[in-house]
Nucleic acid binder design. Structure first.
Lengths: 193, 193
DNA sequence: GTCTATACCAAGATAGAC
DNA sequence: GTCTATCTTGGTATAGAC
């Protein structure tokens, strides 16, 4: 294994943590290279196109992780919706409780989706939320109409994202857990609409 | 009226818009002074303590506005909960639909609540969300127990904040409006818990 | 191919002019 | 009291050393 691969990986992992805690604009290449103990000029060896390329790769990595390790669970046809939800719930709890900061996708959405010059990161972030909504909608299929399932999924994602925001602000996981509990309740409640 | 008062006011209003669209860290004093057509060094005449003082005053202004013009409505004892909700709903729609960007409090929560050095802005942002939750809880009193009302209010705020996030990301107000609709529904549905 | 000294620029802030 | 020329720092990025 060449040294490059591992070091670039390390930069991406560290950058992910920094961006999640401090945001994209408030994290400098200096912060990152300090965290990785390399001179900051060396950063451009791995990322010739600079900070934006780094963020691209970070967002791709996060999106791919969630797609493959979390959202994919919703599509396992041989399992019951309840079991699939429990697995997804556990994944979400492990991810968001065992880390510092909040949701990098939520923060990036707010930080960058309205910058005049170039909303370069918007597609990856949109994709993340679309996949999350679709995965939740699959779980809601048994208790709702197809359109109702989408609405329930959207509500779930909004509740969850708001919960992550308040969890971070108050350093109190109750908001996040309550959102998870409410989603679990909705999964067991047939909808009229 | 001295020139100072009006110009400082103008700086705060402009800064509020810039922070809401681009975030705190991605908005420079240069951006602001360009928007206000003053040399950036003159900014420090109005705000000797720099950008942080500016943000302090922006957040205070936003919080005070919401307290006095929006949340206060919930405490007008002579009016019905339905009428109070309709007034609050209209206010929220006017505020968040007639502006560019999302919710400055939500963005500031995510951007700054985890910075290592100094979470200076956290108290004002927490205060904003506390007042919002309390105001909503008052509206839920008639259909729920006191503790249930708080939970419903927290859920409403989370749904709303998530909706504002997705509205900004997808440039589509449906997420925001659906959250408002769901809150309206909950206000008319007695709770068991 | 791997790494770093250095350049350049933009940001925040000050000292001091009017 | 009002305003601006200027300094300093720290950020991104490159040219070029090993």
């Amino acid at each position: 294994m060449p040294a490059q691969k591992t070091s670039k990986e390390r930069l991406i992992v560290q950058a992910m943590q920094l961006f999640r805690r401090q945001g994209y604009y408030n994290t400098s290449i200096g912060d990152l290279s300090k965290a990785c103990d390399i001179p900051k000029s060396h950063f451009y060896y791995y990322f010739p196109d600079g900070k934006e390329q780094l963020m691209d790769e970070v967002l791709m990595a996060v999106r791919d992780y969630f797609d493959q390790r979390v959202f994919q669970i919703a599509y396992k046809t041989e399992q019951s919706p309840e079991s699939k939800w429990q697995q997804i719930r556990q994944k979400l709890e492990r991810i968001f409780m065992n880390q510092q900061g909040g949701c990098i996708m939520g923060l990036t959405a707010l930080e960058t989706s309205f910058v005049p010059q170039e909303p370069r990161f918007v597609p990856a972030v949109r994709n993340y939320f679309e996949e999350m909504i679709l995965a939740f909608a699959v779980l809601f299929q048994p208790v709702s109409s197809p359109e109702g399932a989408i609405l329930l999924a959207q509500r779930s994602v909004q509740d969850l994202q708001g919960g992550l925001m308040l969890m971070q602000l108050y350093k109190d996981p109750q908001y996040f857990h309550q959102a998870l509990n409410r989603i679990e309740d909705s999964l067991q409640t047939p909808t009229q609409a």
